[in-house]
């Protein structure tokens, strides 16, 4: 039977005071709760009666007592929880920011780590170098892209591009000269759509194939990117810093008067 709260409180008080007259009055007034009252009275009596007592001997201090630990202050628990949550949030934020900055990294256009000799710095090396200077707490900081002063020249050029070639001509097709260089060196040209042919004058004697193509690129408006052991990609754009590139040991080129032709891609 459910006991109303106010009656419940009264029953506890009666059980604790154990006043026979008050108990009798309660039984008369609330006959439905007489049994509940009796049960509660018995429980409280038994609880009070369970109090232990023992013969008191003479006090002798214990030799060893575990140091008394003061109870932890009430503010310590929420403070510790708060600090824990803040630490977890900060760690999560730092890790997420670092992962995002890592995902934004793009490999350099002309770098191909799989095809580079072991001594060539790989993309990972660039990334590691840049990461070491990152501040993981700065979400706005985007790591600098690895820069290559001359993307068309890898630090280690495949042997085919070092083969010395000789091309010479006056008022000849740029495309023909490039194909001549490629044929002599045994390399393959990849030319995207939109590459503009033009009439040129050139004279390269016993010069490295890649150096010849790069010199032509500077003069006639394209960039040569080494794509593998025997492939070079010609993109109609200049190298960022022509002065830093190696010039052929001998040879020269200049535009010749004549019309431009748009060439189809050459495989």
């Amino acid at each position: 039977m459910k006991v109303p709260p106010e009656l419940d409180d009264l029953m506890w008080k009666l059980a604790e005071t154990d006043d026979p007259q008050a108990l009798e009055e309660f039984g008369d007034r609330y006959p439905d709760f007489r049994q509940e009252m009796a049960q509660r009275l018995r429980m409280v009596r038994n609880l009070k009666g369970a109090k232990p007592s023992a013969k008191v001997d003479r006090f002798v201090p214990k030799a060893e007592v575990v140091p008394y630990a003061e109870p932890t202050p009430k503010w310590m628990v929420p403070a510790a929880i708060f600090m824990g949550v803040v630490s977890i949030a900060f760690a999560t934020y730092a890790v997420t920011t670092f992962a995002q900055s890592q995902a934004r990294q793009e490999p350099p256009v002309a770098q191909n780590s799989q095809q580079q000799p072991p001594t060539t710095p790989s993309d990972d090396d660039y990334l590691k170098k840049d990461r070491s200077t990152l501040d993981p707490n700065d979400p706005g900081q985007v790591p600098a892209q690895p820069t290559n002063p001359n993307p068309g020249v890898a630090s280690q050029v495949p042997p085919a591009f070092k083969i010395r070639v000789t091309v010479r001509g006056t008022d000849v097709s740029l495309m023909q000269m490039l194909q001549s260089v490629a044929a002599q060196a045994g390399i393959q040209l990849e030319i995207p759509p939109g590459f503009v042919d033009q009439r040129i004058n050139c004279d390269y004697q016993n010069s490295e194939a890649l150096a010849v193509m790069q010199d032509m690129g500077r003069n006639f408006g394209f960039s040569a990117f080494v794509q593998g052991d025997r492939t070079v990609l010609l993109i109609p754009a200049r190298s960022p810093d022509p002065d830093t590139s190696e010039r052929p040991s001998s040879g020269s080129s200049s535009p010749a008067s004549g019309g431009d032709n748009v060439l189809p891609p050459v495989n």
């Binding site: 038994n46 009666g49 369970a50 232990p52 001997d57």
Partner: peptide, 14 residues
């Protein structure tokens, strides 16, 4: 343990 005198033997209390 030293002897104790417990007036109640209600096992349900404990």
């Amino acid at each position: 343990a030293p002897e104790e005198s417990e007036s109640s033997a209600d096992p349900f209390i404990a």
